[in-house]
Design a protein around this nucleic acid. Structure first.
Lengths: 212, 212
DNA sequence: TGCATAGGTTAACACTGTTCTTTAAATTTG
DNA sequence: CAAATTTAAAGAACAGTGTTAACCTATGCA
């Protein structure tokens, strides 16, 4: 079965090359500029060939969506070792924030665009958005751990987790969409924006600290 | 100058009709489905006519963006009368949240889409995003008032305001984008989602209350 | 009456995602 | 080995998008 193997390997390879090309266009020029035809041009194949490897465009976007989540989970990996629950919670927030600022394009696909979520709902992927849930479970468990050492007393674990997620997501998405820049009467440059995000995060952390 | 007047009135009228048609398509079928050609079909004019009244599509989107802000400001109007600063702050949050849940399409254009912000940056509209700034100023002043009666002690006004905005925006945008629905392992229906948003908001309010 | 001008339309360009049909090569079978 | 079959890839085309240049055509004015 050496021939068969080589063929499937080639096929897997091309599938990967398509995704790499998509990612390259996506990261350098954004979602809008990532068209099937441009991806095809990048890998020097016909546009129609792409449809032999991906069902449609949203399938490709979803693949990038998944890749983003595996990146984020990788960033989270070392934080699992943090002993103190509250330190871990703060580290998660900081890490999430840094991810959003560092990979705005990925952040957009992962947490802002409706298409990938719609794709999940339509295609009913088994274990729908497993990656996302795993990330949220990590947050959920950390909140629970925090409660065990005296934080968030009398509050519901899920509600606290959703609220915490919303807060950091709010900062990330306002940064990514450019609303933070424009809302301030003084227009901020990139560094000032990042500093603003950082400071607002610290205010939030201050709130959390006083729940103990 | 009765004739001239009639003409300019007609012109203003058509401009308004274009926007009304755009809004109708936009609210009923979403942004994606709102094309220049469909707007034209709606008002029974040629697609190119639209370009005599709006520079391009982003110009129309920006007009909707502005309309959304005037709607939000109208919702905020009665809150200016609320005497207690902290009650006012809570009311602003609740009102903002309700707006997001009630008008998800407008919320998307106003606070999530990059295009209108990009439009502002490109076309350098004088008093760039005046409407947005006015809304933010209202929040800013309310935070300042809260500080005067003992809340947010030792914290920076702008940072507190940005953080508060981020928190409610985070909830709204996760709801609008469908991420809240999909992140929970148990898939929520619309009512349950809204309840979740409400509860997470209350957790946040709880944090703010304990800053006094 | 002739001319200029504004309002509107037609045709076209350069794109987009996607599908149907066709070609060409590789593989399996007789 | 030759014929038949499967398979990967591509070409052409459809229906749609935003946008522009060229062309009417009816009105207002000299």
């Amino acid at each position: 079965m050496g021939i068969q193997e080589r063929k499937t390997r080639h096929k897997e390879d091309l599938r990967k090359r398509i995704l790499e090309a998509a990612k390259k266009l996506f990261v350098t020029a954004g979602y809008e500029a990532t068209s099937i035809r441009k991806i095809a041009q990048e890998i020097e194949f016909s546009p129609t060939t792409i449809y032999l490897y991906y069902k449609d465009k949203s399938d490709i976007i979803y693949a990038l969506h998944q890749e983003g989540f595996s990146m984020l989970r990788q960033d989270f990996q070392p934080l699992m070792e943090v002993e103190s629950p509250f330190e871990r919670l703060k580290a998660i927030g900081k890490c999430y924030l840094r991810f959003g600022l560092k990979h705005p394009d990925f952040y957009e696909v992962m947490f802002m665009m409706k298409d990938p979520m719609h794709y999940l709902q339509i295609h009913c992927v088994d274990g729908a958005w497993e990656e996302g849930e795993r990330v949220f479970d990590f947050l959920l468990q950390t909140v629970r751990d925090c409660q065990e050492v005296g934080y968030f007393k009398g509050l519901d674990t899920v509600q606290v987790a959703v609220q915490a997620w919303s807060s950091v997501h709010g900062l990330c998405s306002l940064y990514v969409s450019g609303h933070l820049r424009n809302m301030m009467e003084v227009i901020l440059n990139n560094d000032e924006q990042e500093a603003m995000v950082e400071k607002a995060f610290r205010v939030f952390v201050h709130y959390l600290e006083s729940t103990k």
